[in-house]
Every structure is written in C-alpha cells, then in structure tokens.
C-alpha cells in the first residue's frame, strides 16, 4: 500500500471505528446509569450508533473534526513526502465521505470543499531516534473545541491559587461551564505550565493516552483520579441531561513555566473520542 492509501485507511478508521478503550468506557457508563433514565437512553443510542458506523463504514459523527496529525520520523526523512500524502489522503477521504469538508476560509467564509486550507490538515512533525515512522491522527470536533479553555493562575473569582489545588478549581469550573455542549461525557486533556501556545499543545496531545492510563508523576496521577471522581459528581451527565457520567477520563501533564506565568489549558474531547495510530516499519503498516 502506498503512503497516501495507508493514511486514507488511517483516516477511515479514525472516523468510523471508535477505539476499544473508548467503547469499553462508554459501555461501562451505560451499565452504571439507572434503568429508565434519559442518561441510560443516551448511552444506548451512542453504543448503537458506534456499532452501526463501524458496520457501515460511515462517520460516527457528522462533524469529522479538524484533522490533526502527529508524525514522528527518523533522521533524513522528508517532511514534504508526508504532508503531500496527507493532503492527498484528506481529499480522497472527503470524496469517500469519511470526512465532511471542514476547512473554511475565515476571511471569505468559503469552504474549500476538500478539507485543504492554510494549516489544514495541521501536521506536528517530530524527529526521533527510532528507525520507524509513527503517524497519529486526531479528529477534533468543533463543538468540543469551542468549550476548551485556558486559565491563568491565580484566578481570583474562584480563589484558585498557583498550585495543584488551584488547577483543580479551574478544571471544575471549565466542566460546569461546558455543561453538555461539548457532547458530554467528555475526556479532558489538561496542560499545566508552558506559554499560551504550549499549554494548549500539551493538553491536546494527552488525547493519545488510553482511557485509564495514569500519569507517571504520582502527584499528577492523584489529581487525575480526584478530578475524575469529582467531575462525575456534578450530575451534568451525557448530553447534559443529568446523570452519573460527565467525564470518561482526565489526562493531565505538566511542563516548565515562566516564573511569572501559570497557565492551565483544558481541551475537551467529545464522547466520540476519535484518534488512531499507525506505524510504518520495514515497508509494513501496522494500525493500532
């Protein structure tokens, strides 16, 4: 399979076939909600839809998101080779209805019709020491992106200081503000520290972790578990209908901050948590 076709298949999988860890988490949420509640009904519909999408090979959600690629490649490889293959695959995926055309020029409001635009798809390149190439894609929906947010600590309205207790407060605030609007139950990616840009970048890349995967830092892992439990007490529930599951998981990571700044970026991933990975090694393609 050539590079373009293998990326096309990666996009197809991301759009139509929800990863096992997410399906498992949604199934558990369904079992956990009480019989006869709207929340349980929502999970039933969600699980039916996920099954149908896989069988029909059609998008789980019509908002197939912004295409965000993360590529790790060995020394000496050309970035251009990958960006051209990704463009070709995105055009083809749009023609095959794996993707909705989602690249709009903000000046003219014109939709390009093929998911190609300035910085669309967006590709994060990273050179690494392995002799293999890893291509990861995330389909990031617009509704969930709109409820993402960034705080700078201290945040006086909540008396949130410059420590993990302060981080906890603003995360709760963000989820209450989001209600069901980001297609709850969401999964949170949180970046602590860095600058305006890198805090968001760190928050987004957390979405490649598997549901249930805790941070290696014990303090952060503790906060992840605490927030997971705390946020599910809010009773916002799936779609904001009320219920026991408001988030599926919380992923946090930290990085160095400037002495004067303390940013907390919160990215919200909808329940249709779509990301897939492929590895190219010795001419072989392996999908996750």
């Amino acid at each position: 399979m050539d590079l373009k076709d293998s990326i096309l298949e990666l996009i197809r999988r991301a759009s139509t076939d929800l990863s096992e860890d997410v399906v498992k988490s949604l199934s558990e949420a369904y079992e956990n909600e009480d019989e006869g509640t709207p929340a349980r009904g929502v999970f039933k519909t969600i699980l039916e839809n996920v099954k149908m999408a896989k069988e029909q090979s059609t998008p789980i959600c019509q908002d197939t998101g912004s295409l965000l690629f993360y590529i790790d490649f060995p020394e000496g490889e050309s970035e251009k080779k990958y960006s051209e293959a990704i463009e070709g695959a995105a055009i083809e995926a749009t023609k095959k209805q794996y993707l909705r055309p989602n690249a709009v020029d903000p000046v003219t409001s014109k939709n390009s019709g093929n998911n190609i635009g300035v910085n669309a798809p967006y590709i994060h390149f990273h050179q690494w020491d392995k002799d293999e190439v890893r291509i990861r894609v995330m389909l990031k929906g617009g509704g969930s992106e709109n409820v993402g947010t960034q705080y700078k600590l201290p945040f006086p309205p909540l008396k949130a200081g410059r420590d993990l207790a302060g981080v906890r407060k603003v995360v709760i605030d963000a989820v209450v503000n989001a209600q069901g609007l980001g297609c709850a139950p969401g999964t949170l990616g949180i970046g602590i520290g860095g600058d305006r840009i890198t805090s968001y970048a760190l928050s987004k890349v957390q979405f490649f972790r598997k549901i249930g995967e805790r941070s290696a830092d014990p303090e952060i892992a503790k906060l992840e578990k605490d927030l997971n439990e705390t946020l599910n007490k809010l009773q916002i529930g799936p779609m904001g209908f009320g219920g026991k599951t408001t988030v599926l998981d919380v992923f946090i990571s930290s990085q160095a901050r400037h002495p004067a700044t303390f940013f907390v970026a919160i990215s919200y991933m909808c329940w249709a948590f779509r990301r897939k990975t492929m590895v190219l090694k010795n001419g072989e393609v392996i999908y996750d």
Binding site: I46, N49, A53, P59, C61, Q62, P101, G180, C270, W271
Partner: peptide, 30 residues
C-alpha cells in the same frame, strides 16, 4: 434534543433528500 455524535444512526432515519438551497454559496455543512 437529538443525541450529539449519533451521526450514522440519525442519517439512517433520513429517508429522502428533497431539495437543497444555498449549497454553492454556503458549502454542504451550512
């Protein structure tokens, strides 16, 4: 309220597209 994200399931209840307006100008999502 419909179930957000249930794209395929809801599309299956759409039996027919009768007409479309402003397709060229707004693009298919709009």
């Amino acid at each position: 309220h419909a179930i957000g994200g249930a794209g395929t399931l809801i599309a299956n209840s759409v039996k027919k597209v009768k007409k479309v307006f402003k397709l060229e100008e707004f693009g298919s999502p709009e």
